[in-house]
């Protein structure tokens, strides 16, 4: 399979890439290309121009900010993320090996996964649960948004055509935190039928003082399940409390259905894996 013809520009700076995006409606960014190229080969995507940002040094690397948070450059590959201090976050250690395979994790980038916004991508669930921030650059400046609300539909995000996702900011690891990712995968593709990431903060007496729950594969976009978080906070995370909270993971959302899993089954799996993720997160926090 051969993609439709396109023009190719390898950007030498973020400014150059932003300039091309601003002046060319048909331009699309490529980094690792692990999601975009398969779509182009199937001709589901036919960009007139690819702007290759894959070699921009300013978008590379993982660095610690003054406040202890981690800035993960958009071009960081999954493999590089697993070689970075981000592995101190247990949910990152859980989620990355669940994504695709070695070869794809060697090329695929964190920024690409977020900007591409596949409704069943694993990583967004973890970013939502971690309350990650996304740093977005355009020719008019830099803005930061929460991962919560960024994913708006299948392959649709809050990123405008003339913007570049520059970095993902992960929280500093905390002693009172536990986190985990649990998913059921479609065996052939490895994509989650339902995937849930959980982050909990546990205080004195085992009281759950805070929680973040990110869900993927279930609806037409990854989402943060505030209902589950609210139900969990203030409890001591007993089996009953966890089960009651996990039961709220779907709510009144429209659940996806395909040949691998109907609505009812997918919703049931979301509840099961919400419970498993929360229980694993609690065990790690205690």
């Amino acid at each position: 399979m051969i993609p439709a013809a396109f023009d190719y520009t390898r950007a030498t700076s973020v400014e150059e890439a932003l300039g091309i995006l601003a002046s060319d409606e048909g331009a699309k960014l490529i980094a690792g290309g692990q999601s975009l190229l398969p779509l182009m080969k199937l001709r589901l995507a036919q960009p007139a121009r690819l702007v290759d940002i894959g070699r921009l040094p300013e978008l590379r690397g993982v660095s610690k900010l003054d406040d202890g948070r981690l800035s993960v450059g958009a071009l960081t590959t999954y493999a590089e993320l697993m070689d970075s201090p981000a592995v101190h976050l247990a949910v990152i250690r859980d989620v990355v090996p669940a994504i695709a395979d070695v070869q794809v994790r060697n090329r695929g980038t964190i920024g690409g996964a977020v900007a591409h916004a596949d409704p069943a991508a694993d990583l967004p669930a973890a970013l939502l649960a971690l309350d990650a921030e996304l740093v977005i650059q355009s020719s008019s400046g830099t803005r930061s948004v929460k991962a919560d609300g960024f994913f708006q539909g299948p392959f649709a995000t809050g990123l405008a055509h003339d913007e570049i996702l520059a970095a993902v900011i992960l929280p500093a690891p905390r002693g009172d935190a536990g986190s985990a990712y649990a998913s059921i995968q479609q065996r052939a593709s490895g994509y989650p039928i339902a995937g849930v990431a959980a982050v909990v903060f546990v205080g004195a007496g085992g009281l759950v003082e805070g929680a973040g729950i990110g869900v993927t594969g279930v609806s037409d976009h990854p989402y943060r399940a505030h209902e589950v978080e609210d139900a969990l906070v203030g409890t001591t995370g007993t089996a009953d409390a966890v089960a009651a909270a996990a039961a709220l993971v779907v709510g009144d959302r429209e659940v996806s259905a395909d040949i691998h899993a109907g609505r009812e089954y997918r919703a049931a799996m979301a509840v099961v894996h919400a419970r498993r993720a929360i229980e694993a997160a609690l065990a790690r926090a205690r």
Partner: peptide, 23 residues
Amino acid sequence: DTSQCGACTVLVDGHAVKSCTML
């Protein structure tokens, strides 16, 4: 030819990649 089977795996700068999914 869809990035699944790995028959096209080569090393690029020492890292295994699927050469059907790289320009």
